[in-house]
Nucleic acid binder design. Sequence first.
DNA 1: GGGATATGGTCAACCTTCTTGACCATCTGG
DNA 2: CCAGATGGTCAAGAAGGTTGACCATATCCC
Lengths: 142, 142
Amino acid sequence: MALSAALLAVAGELTRRIHDGVVARGFEGVRPAHGFAFARLAPDGATVTELAAHLGVTKQAASQLVDEMVRKGYVERRPHPEDARARLIMLTERGWACARAAEEAAVEAVRPWTELLGEREVRTLQGQLLRIAPHGPVRPSW
Amino acid sequence: MALSAALLAVAGELTRRIHDGVVARGFEGVRPAHGFAFARLAPDGATVTELAAHLGVTKQAASQLVDEMVRKGYVERRPHPEDARARLIMLTERGWACARAAEEAAVEAVRPWTELLGEREVRTLQGQLLRIAPHGPVRPSW
DNA sequence: GGGATATGGTCAACCTTCTTGACCATCTGG
DNA sequence: CCAGATGGTCAAGAAGGTTGACCATATCCC
């Protein structure tokens, strides 16, 4: 049980730090859920349905999230090049900037661990975690 | 970033498995949030205000959670022995049974890790996590 | 080709869980 | 013993999710 508690504590702390780091870089009104969405949209965009599958929510919920991100200027809905029903959700320039900020914040949040455990141990840690749950849920919900 | 993603994936997977394990043992209508509450109530009970502080929510929210757990038979409100304003929230017999089930489910959820990494590595992992965030938030929210 | 059916997306209504604000009962310090 | 602090609840509302209905377009199959 101690292991579970420690893991959840670290995950919660990490999420909080990344979020704080993103806010500190000037992106307000953004939630962790947006970050999980960015991860799917980043390479080439995605449809609402794909995003919903990625996040593990209904497509209505994903659509509302997109509404919000559009309103805040992070993404835009473009016509899909191959399917007139669908729309391709793509990051705007501001969206890319926010994604880069999240990346920086993540690196910054992990840095103290390297100072504490050493670089080799951190790599070991990462390897162990990847072996334990290579395909865990993207949006852990509880 | 890969490290962060792996950590969140493992945490999400772990939470899901513990929850499933508890449900499989016959406790329905119970959420992970209840488990976090049990952890504080288990030794000797606690007041609503203490529980709220533990969970990181308002005392109104904690009170509602207690309402729900009372309705489901996991806890009961008893008069506080030293403060007539307060009430001592204590686990019922069913509450204790559920807490034991969660403990079992947690052990079961972690067992595959031991098979995968070996017992020594898992202990190392636990030690590393405890050093990284010894006092992370109890109820990671995102 | 063309109609039945599947799929992408949205609108609307509702539910759950948390918050804020107001309030009462009781404890505590001067 | 009274003023202020603290424990708890009630009520209303915000946030973020779900289900159900619906339209537009794509795909399958004759």
